[in-house]
Amino acid sequence: MASFAARSFVAVLRKDLLLEVRGGQSTVALGALSLLVLVVLVFAFNPAGGERGAAAAAGALWVALVFSGMLGATRAVSGESENGCIRALLMSPLDRAALYAAKLAAAFIFMAVAEAASIILMVLFFNLEFDLRVMRLAPAVMLGALGFAALATLLAGISSRLRGGDLVLPLLAVPMFVPALIAGVKASAAALAGAPLGEFAVWLKVLVAFDVLFVAAGYLLFEYVAGEE
């Protein structure tokens, strides 16, 4: 049974990635959105480097993460609405938890690609150096992407079935993600400012806790949000 669930997970994820490679809609849109956010914020903050510059860069990066996350999760879930494919998935022997895990993995991969591009742009726009401090951003950003993808995938399961669901997703997702967002911005700012590892690690632990919460909630609840009609 577990191997069947694993095979189903692989089949759905493989299909989503194949569709993304064919269409490229999610990654291109996420990249473009991240670029737009960073350009707007770099002109708004006009950073001059130092600790304030690091904080501004961290904030801009997480704004880009939140926007791109909403788009990525919506794409991963709403893509199934075309030709009613979500109904076929729900009727199949596919375990709903495996479906959620595959959708989460797809949204995470889309976000991770967009975030990697965003970090490069952030370093260029905010006059930072490609050094160890930027490398230390990776765990915070990846944990943030995982948590937001987990939350947004669950909520996209609800919003994709509603009229005006595109408006519902940010209204639900952003307030629920705020505590993790604060932790992510703090961790990223500490990493970019070269703060001691201890200060940085505290915020990472908060991010891990929220990731566990969001992933567990999605895993347990997706069956109900996806199955109801």
């Binding site: 299909k15 009613g84 109904r87 199949s92």
Partner: peptide, 22 residues
Amino acid sequence: QSFLYPNLTARENLEFYAALYG
């Protein structure tokens, strides 16, 4: 509704569902 993915080929669509149904 056909339950088919427009950007997959006919073979890929059936192979996907074959995997889901074991």
